[in-house]
Design a protein around this nucleic acid. Structure first.
Length: 186
DNA sequence: CGGATTTGACCCGCGC
DNA sequence: GCGCGGGTCAAATCCG
């Protein structure tokens, strides 16, 4: 595996005057709803390197990404049909993004993901990949994209929370320890 | 053979 | 209404 480190993106000054919006409205099979709880994201870290998670709000993320010239469609609503039909408040599922510096795109965070799409992103020569957690009933998604600006940087965005434990039997304690760090930064 | 990936089609919201 | 950008579906394909 390969080492990578988390960067703390911050930058920005401008705008989100046009937050890219997207559609998330989903489809036919009603996914079991997210239990949107806007606090903790339950993902974690990986192997041998320790790193910190930086939870952020959608708008913050948007700012960052926009300012880096990589428009990432975060910001959007993940309000679902369910919300519609139930007349509930539009809950936006929280999204958490962070950047890492790595040669590889697939950061192994301990969960098992199934790729369900890949799209070219405007202003970016690298495609964005979409993954969904394969655990039954778990609707967590994540997308990964590399910045053209600096192709050493990979942006990973998580959406939703896992409703189950990590699947992988990870190699060793180091991994577990790094996870513990993740759960306590608040 | 079964699960994961690939990849083009499809769908939706938004701005013009 | 149309086209565009972004997100998802799903059939075909790949791979263990």
């Amino acid at each position: 595996m390969e080492k990578f480190q988390i960067l703390f993106p911050y930058a920005s000054t401008r705008s989100s005057d046009h937050p890219v919006s997207s559609s998330m409205t989903d489809n036919s099979h009603n996914l079991s709803d997210f239990k949107a709880d806007s606090t903790s994201g339950g993902f974690l870290g990986s192997k041998k390197e320790n790193y910190h998670l930086v939870p952020r709000t959608s708008s913050e993320i948007n700012k960052d990404l926009n300012s880096q010239g990589a428009s990432f469609g975060i910001g959007s609503p993940t309000e679902l049909k369910a919300a519609k039909k139930k007349g509930e408040k539009k809950v936006r599922k929280p999204r958490y993004a962070f950047q890492t510096r790595s040669q590889v795109d697939i950061l192994d965070d301990g969960y098992r993901w199934r790729k369900y799409g890949q799209k070219a992103v405007k202003n970016n020569k690298f495609p964005r990949s979409y993954y969904r957690c394969t655990y039954q009933g778990c609707t967590v998604k994540k997308q990964v994209q590399r910045l053209t600006k600096d192709e050493g940087v990979v942006v990973t965005t998580y959406e939703g929370m896992h409703n189950h434990p990590i699947e992988k039997s990870n190699d060793n304690f180091e991994h577990i320890l790094s996870q513990m760090q993740i759960y306590t930064p608040f």
